[in-house]
């Protein structure tokens, strides 16, 4: 299992903070964030998408992203239609994400309405460059999905994109009530990964998309270090279930499930990340 104890990259400032917090610091998981404000749209609209490599349960620290290897959307209107892949690399714009420990390279994209004005599902995919984690002397590459639906017509929300590491939803990622559950299957190149290790974090600090920083105050206080990053295991078919205790965004990351295990002569962890949005029933 990877936790901050093994993945710490935070330098002197964060080491100092760790000392201030005490020896038993909270576990933090690296998460590739792929965010847009609203995933269940009544009709198509222009979208602002934020891409950030960070620790969402703790509002940082954030790490420098390299130039992504891929950024695209696979859309489908209705379950009988064919999926359509649209490359979005031209919309990538580098931005500096502000954080207590300095700034981190992040990316954003302003997508025109014409890209997502049809009914159906839109599976946004980010294939980031491998990130060198000096604390572990290894690379991490998190293949990340975030889904948007327009108009309530379902499409390819449960289908595989075909990533080296991927979480297949068993429930729609854009239609979840607080108090419900979310289910998925961890796959590597389409094959289920038995007993996969997963980490789950709540996006506990709102994203300030104008100022490119996290909100200063968290949404919730963790009673103990185990709660910031929830560690779970998939069953022998690669399936998992998580409870959705609060409205907002939940990130799910399956660790080291991809088949590529080396990058530039060092170990490589290919992870699968899926983001889901949860709403209160009111």
């Amino acid at each position: 299992m990877r936790t901050a104890a093994f993945r710490s990259v935070h330098g002197v400032l964060w080491a100092g903070l760790g000392i201030a917090l005490g020896a038993a610091g909270p576990a933090r998981a690296h998460f590739q964030v792929l965010y847009t404000a609203e995933t269940a749209l009544d009709s198509g609209r222009a979208m602002h998408v934020m891409m950030l490599f960070t620790h969402p349960g703790h509002g940082g620290p954030s790490m420098d992203m390299g130039q992504p290897e891929g950024f695209y959307v696979v859309s489908q209107r209705g379950e009988e239609a064919a999926p359509v892949k649209t490359d979005l690399m031209q919309y990538l714009e580098p931005v500096r994400w502000h954080a207590e420990q300095g700034q981190a390279q992040a990316y954003q994209a302003d997508l025109p309405r014409t890209l997502a004005r049809s009914l159906g599902d839109y599976v946004f995919v980010l294939e980031p460059a491998p990130f060198y984690e000096s604390g572990e002397d290894k690379y991490i590459q998190q293949f990340t999905k975030m889904l948007v639906n327009v108009g309530g017509v379902p499409g390819n929300w449960g289908a595989a994109v075909g990533l080296p590491a991927e979480i297949l939803p068993l429930d729609k990622p854009y239609a979840n009530w607080t108090g419900g559950v979310f289910r998925g299957v961890v796959v590597a190149s389409g094959r289920p990964v038995p007993n996969a290790e997963l980490e789950v974090e709540y996006l506990n600090y709102a994203l300030d998309l104008e100022g490119h920083r996290f909100a200063s105050e968290p949404e919730v206080q963790y009673p103990q270090g185990s709660f910031g990053t929830l560690s779970i295991k998939a069953n022998d078919r690669g399936e998992f279930v998580i409870g959705l205790a609060r409205a907002g965004w939940w990130g799910i990351c399956a660790l080291t499930v991809g088949t590529d295990t080396e990058h530039e002569g060092k170990p490589l962890s290919q992870d699968a990340v899926l983001w889901i949005q949860v709403k209160d029933m009111r």
Binding site: R77, G78, E79
Partner: peptide, 27 residues
Amino acid sequence: HSPICNCYDNGDGTVTCEGGFSDGASA
């Protein structure tokens, strides 16, 4: 299932309407 229809202006004097159903069935 529920019927769903959405229309948008193509900006060239034409309108396109798309239909579907909440269970993913074709229209």
